[in-house]
Design a protein around this nucleic acid. Sequence first.
DNA 1: CGCGACTCCTGCCGGC
DNA 2: TGCCGGCAGGAGTCGC
Length: 270
Amino acid sequence: MPELPEVETSRRGIEPFLVGEQIYEIIIRNRGLRWPVAHDVERRLTGATVTSVGRRAKYLLINTSAGTAIVHLGMSGSVFIVDRGTPAGVHDHFDVDLSGGKSLRYRDPRRFGSLHWTDNPAGHWLLRNLGPEPLSDRFDGDYLWLKSRGRRVAVKQFIMNAGIVVGVGNIYASEALFIAGIHPRRAAGRISQSRYMKLAAAIKEVLARAIKAGGTTLRDFYGGDGEAGYFRQQLDVYGRDGEGCRHCGREISLIVLGQRSTFYCKSCQR
DNA sequence: CGCGACTCCTGCCGGC
DNA sequence: TGCCGGCAGGAGTCGC
């Protein structure tokens, strides 16, 4: 479900409810997430005060006076605020109860998400080997071009590799390649520096626009404020196979790359 | 090391 | 109407 814009939308939605609050209780109903939730999470966080809510790649970082909770939403996860004591559904795997009477609720039907505690987020094994944030100055066309030399993998898989750049998932990879006019199957090592400049700019642009629109709601994504994301209307190619290209009118094509559906225009992308 | 395939899990949709 | 196959926004791991 969530790529970077959806995670960032969630972060912004929940942050005002969490910062300054003391964690009254952690209730874990199902520890069987992608990685079993460790048994010290409750002890570590109970009584701590939330200082900020950050994000690294698609991980939410709930920073407290006693370490950080690392929350990943997987494919189907979401977080939202409820009144403490609101009955939980079958997929509501944990709550962070706050002293003011609200709770942060985590829902994830497929359980591909995760919850970890750490006192050193940057050094945590999940975060240690991640590439730069796409919206940071460290990420640009020169960086992509340098990293791609000698690599034969398709450029779409290359930009979805979190060791190269984080946060670009299946929707925004297709969208950015369309904006940059690059065929998704082109070998990463056979793309010029100037085209990588366009691609880096396209990635930044599409992610920034999606954040502004509150993310993309395909089926069940809602930000921390409970609002759907409105970026779906702005998608040029994702999910539009068979429909007309917004630039040239030709039918959008659907291929499978690295087991993932990939959408592009045969005329506009080379 | 790079790369492709596989895996985890539930829900939903389209076709028969 | 009901059943079944396929697919879904992620990403670590394994084998070559």
